[in-house]
Computed example of a mutant assay.
Amino acid sequence: MQPYYWESAHGNFGDDLNLWLWDFLLPGFRDVHPQTLLVGVGTVLNRVLLPEGQHKLVIGSGFGYGSLPDFSRSEEWDIRCVRGPLTAKAIGVAPEKGIVDPAVMLAEMPEFQNLPKRYKKSFVPHWESAVSGLWSSIVPKIGLTYIDPCGEAKSVIRQILQSEMIIAESMHGAIIADALRVPWVAVSTSVAINNFKWNDWASTLGVTYKPLHVPLSTRAEAKMKGDRFWGMSFKGDEPAPENPNERPVDEAVLAEARAPQQSGLRMAAKQVLAGPAMLGLLKASRAEPQLSRDGILSERKAQFMDVIEGVRRDYGIVG
């Protein structure tokens, strides 16, 4: 059995954690049922992402992009639980199977416990914002810590844990902050952010997804997200592809966003244009954060571990 994860061309910690989380939750799973694909953390219940003709064990995955796979082939699917009730309804399984995102179980790993606080307030952008925006440069200027969602997953998670508060555009930034008991505020820079998947998770823990709006920071960011920046519209007529890695992107514009910080007038001009983004993020950092109740989180984690025990039993996983 091998874990499936969607591999962003740029890196995304919320997907990359599949590479090691399941070794903690299901030690020994790699040694059994080589024909089975373990489909875990991520919005990956998507027709073009998952291979046909292979047995798939679904534990906590979500729907939210593209079109659904063909679930009529029952011999290919073992759906034990999904991320939340919206996914459960979309794919036609019992609502009680919409338990929680598996990333909440990171809190049980010893390496993510009892670390000292090092950061007051930190911002975790969506990976698209990270690769196309000016956030890494402007976030420190307003007294916040920048956490790169494209960084190494365990390092990102430790930074979240060691923060006193998280401002999250990244959904897994909020999920992991909540699981590690770090208060969080949700923000959104664009209509490209997927409300369905946020509400799918939020409804399992009794929290509310009402993101505060933060303006985009660069022209490149607007172009990547099909949005507006300082009156310029980059909305396209073509629908987004089902595989996010196939989205057409102007590489010249992205190269400009990734370039080392320029000095002098050019960088000053870019930071002036990013002024509304800085102000919006500063306001968000002063908002009242939220956190799910301890009892609800514990109940969901217990339900999830019941699923894990069933998988261990039924697949003969000894570890």
Rank of each mutant, 00 (worst) to 15 (best):
251 E>S: 02
111 E>G: 08
265 L>C: 07
278 M>N: 04
299 E>S: 07
75 E>W: 10
202 A>S: 12
236 G>S: 13
273 L>H: 00
85 P>K: 03
26 L>K: 00
10 H>T: 14
204 T>V: 05
90 A>T: 01
63 F>C: 13
94 A>D: 15
101 D>A: 00
78 D>V: 05
80 R>E: 15
218 T>Y: 01
295 G>R: 12
252 A>Y: 08
272 V>E: 07
140 P>S: 13
296 I>N: 10
19 L>Q: 15
229 F>D: 07
181 R>A: 06
3 P>Y: 12
303 Q>E: 15
129 S>D: 09
105 M>L: 15
155 S>Y: 09
132 S>I: 03
154 K>D: 15
142 I>W: 03
9 A>D: 15
119 Y>I: 06
53 G>I: 11
207 V>M: 08
31 D>P: 04
113 Q>I: 12
140 P>R: 11
72 S>G: 00
6 W>G: 11
191 V>E: 14
97 K>F: 08
99 I>F: 08
85 P>W: 05
192 A>R: 02
63 F>G: 10
156 V>G: 01
220 A>L: 01
160 I>D: 05
159 Q>Y: 09
188 S>L: 02
89 K>G: 13
111 E>C: 11
112 F>S: 12
245 N>H: 01
6 W>H: 13
15 D>H: 03
276 P>R: 04
3 P>G: 08
73 R>M: 09
159 Q>T: 10
268 A>S: 10
189 T>M: 07
116 P>G: 06
124 V>T: 03
277 A>I: 02
184 W>G: 08
121 K>S: 15
148 D>G: 06
64 G>L: 00
241 P>S: 04
131 V>E: 05
185 V>I: 13
282 L>C: 05
